[in-house]
């Protein structure tokens, strides 16, 4: 138990609205190991985001417990970084100042900040855009900044809520490859929500599939990795084993169509 990075047990959430209580999720149990990349696929409205928000500490679960390193989660903290679907980088900060924001908050020295920012700008192919404002960047670029900002703060766990959903299909492929490379290079624990089956399998060590609302976890598939260092779409699509897994997941997801 103590080795689980994240342990969700008996989690269930109910929203109080003007019209009365709405059950956001069914009962969910899951664990994530240190360094693992776990993706969660499920139909819209199944409660994926609610679960992620609870792990992030933005909401208190109605039932059940969520432990991080064996300790209950009390609220948001810098050990768990979040990348949102809608852009959450600040429009009034340049790329450089957005990426370095976490370190600035932590009180890091300017030299240290510059070093980390420079490394991430290089890793996320943002060179030349350091002093631009977000509105001067394309959607894909903005999302790179959001990812880089989260990595720069160096959290142990990274939570990503459909981060590439609003990006065009071509850019998306590049971003996914970049993310895979980044994860391989840094060994973070990642919990990633998506409704794209391919994306889920491409990135994950383990894929979780959710039922429709109120969502519970209906299946779990391990994705074997032959060469952890290099994941790219060419070798992924050429791999018959991956195609098998994709077919299985697709089947599970399609059964949940509303």
């Amino acid at each position: 138990m103590a080795t689980d990075k994240i342990a969700v047990s008996g989690f269930r959430h109910v929203f109080q609205t003007e019209a009365g209580p709405v059950q956001a999720t069914g009962t969910i149990d899951l664990t994530i190991q240190p360094g693992e990349f776990v993706t969660l696929v499920g139909p819209s409205g199944c409660g994926k985001t609610t679960l992620l928000k609870a792990i992030a500490g933005f909401i208190q679960p109605s039932e059940g417990t969520i432990l991080c390193d064996g300790k209950p989660i009390k609220g948001p903290g810098r050990d768990r970084g979040v990348v949102f679907q809608e852009l959450a980088i600040l429009p009034w900060r340049t790329v450089r100042r957005n990426i370095g924001h976490g370190l600035e908050i932590a009180g890091a020295s300017k030299a240290e900040r510059d070093k980390t920012v420079a490394r991430l700008i290089d890793l996320m192919s943002l060179t030349g855009f350091e002093d631009r404002y977000p509105h001067e960047l394309s959607g894909g670029m903005k999302q790179r900044v959001a990812v880089a900002r989260t990595w720069a703060a160096d959290p142990e766990i990274i939570l990503m809520d459909e981060p590439f959903a609003a990006v065009d299909a071509m850019t998306r492929l590049t971003l996914q490859e970049e993310l895979a490379r980044l994860c391989a290079a840094t060994g973070k624990t990642v919990f990633f929500i998506t409704h794209s089956v391919e994306e889920a399998i491409f990135l994950a060590d383990r894929v979780l599939v959710m039922t429709r609302r109120p969502g519970t976890i209906k299946a779990e598939l391990a994705v074997p990795r032959r060469n952890a260092g290099g994941r790219d779409w060419d070798s992924f699509t050429a791999d018959p084993e991956m195609r098998d897994i994709a077919e299985k997941v697709m089947h599970l997801v399609h059964a949940e169509r509303v």
């Binding site: 500490g57 948001p76 903290g77 979040v82 809608e86 852009l87 600040l90 009034w92 976490g102 900002r149």
Partner: peptide, 29 residues
Amino acid sequence: IPENYVLALQSLGAGRLRIVRDVYLPGAL
């Protein structure tokens, strides 16, 4: 101001004062 700006900063470890300074003030300007 989008709620996400505040949430994102909270998960970067920002306190209340920091959020006022870095999000609310420039956002409302």
